[in-house]
Design a protein around this nucleic acid. Structure first.
Lengths: 217, 217
DNA sequence: AAAATATTGTGACAATTACAACAAAGTACT
DNA sequence: AGTACTTTGTTGTAATTGTCACAATATTTT
């Protein structure tokens, strides 16, 4: 299976990657939709690369509400290093949304320079930095959305973020409306009601996952 | 003025710092409490180091609500590079909370290796990475807090975060209760009411900025 | 020390959001 | 094609949160 699709191994030659696979003691695993790929509470401190499928990093708090912390696609990377500590002792897991293939390796192997001196290990470390920077950007966007004070403002903020990325007022949501509610940390039915109001006020047009934002803020 | 206090210049010798001051075309500025140190909308793409005083990075949205995005103390670093783009076109500024002294420099100077080949420029780049990683951690904590669905949960989450850092159930808030409301993105009086309830239920004890958390979640 | 300003504490009332429950539409699986 | 499951759409009601207004302390400035 290809791991070269991942930004973690960007600019690393196929041979070096091959060498790292043994050097990092990487193993490949398969998961079916709905299965837990990784549980952050187990404290093994691994880094994982999704080479096939899509998954979400989700948190279930002590009251049982789910919050989607992040969505991962092919090439996506996850791990304690990219997640930082879990404060409240809630369950945080990576869950497959569709059939997935994942490479797992120990985090310290990735950051420490290996004894075998893989030619491109330095590149991997640099890529790791790049990933942290990207993570910071996406977390910042998350904060932008979550710090809005009403459901409508959260939605508009999130929508205009996506609209800006697609360079236009039209774009596709990366997940279902149910999942969107979890992403913006609100009740689904309350969100649906607000969406309806916004549709009535001609602020947005929504058909399935396709969104057309009329009033770009 | 000392800029060596900043993590941006960690492990950079005093002489190299001196050299960089000219190389980066750094200039020092002073601000009184309440003054705007930096406005992200001006698009000059600078990096600033706070060498004296304390400040907050705040966002005022189109409705006029203030949200504290971050608090900076002596040594704190700010800049577009650490802030990423502003999506909604709101005003984002760095505002002095007390008299401040700030060194300002152009962002590209910091990341690009300079022609004069300052001995420790590489170190500064590495420090910049470190800062981005720390920023990611604090943003992640922010998301943890903001994604809670009630004021009480937000407070408890934030409090246990601070409690964990101080290794005990007792700690000091880094800002006033009014500012805390802006930080957790809620209405102040609603927060006060919730705090009162929590006090009555003996979950917490609050005297001024001193907090004693009884029920660490 | 007095004045000005900011912060804290409180309450009534309005608006928003969460909860719960159910039907309809869509998808996936056998 | 039929069944199981998920997602979407909708509501009434309860709970929470926001708004406004004002008094009482603190804190800072003059």
């Amino acid at each position: 299976m290809e791991i070269g699709v991942s930004p973690l191994f960007r600019d690393v030659s196929e041979e070096s990657q091959q060498a790292m696979r043994t050097c990092f003691a990487m193993r490949e695993y398969s998961f079916r939709a709905g299965e837990v790929i990784y549980d952050f509470s187990e404290g093994r401190n691994m880094v994982g690369v999704l080479t096939q499928g899509a998954a979400v990093i989700e948190r279930i708090d002590h009251q049982g509400s789910r919050t989607i912390l992040e969505r991962l696609e092919r090439g996506g990377v996850f791990g304690e290093m990219l997640m930082f500590e879990n404060v409240a002792g809630d369950s945080i897991t990576v869950v497959a949304e569709e059939p997935c293939r994942v490479w797992l390796m120990a985090a310290d192997q990735v950051t420490k320079r290996c004894e075998n001196a893989c030619a491109h290990h330095t590149q991997v470390v640099e890529n790791m930095f790049q990933l942290v920077a990207e993570k910071a950007t996406s977390l910042y966007e998350r904060v932008e959305v979550l710090s809005r004070r009403s459901i409508r403002d959260k939605l508009l903020c999130y929508f205009s973020l996506l609209a800006a990325k697609s360079r236009g007022g039209e774009f596709s949501l990366p997940f279902s409306l149910s999942a969107l509610a979890d992403y913006i940390s609100t009740d689904r039915s309350a969100m649906m009601r607000e969406l309806k109001k916004m549709r009535d006020e001609k602020l947005v047009d929504i058909q399935g996952r396709r969104v057309l934002l009329h009033q770009v803020i």
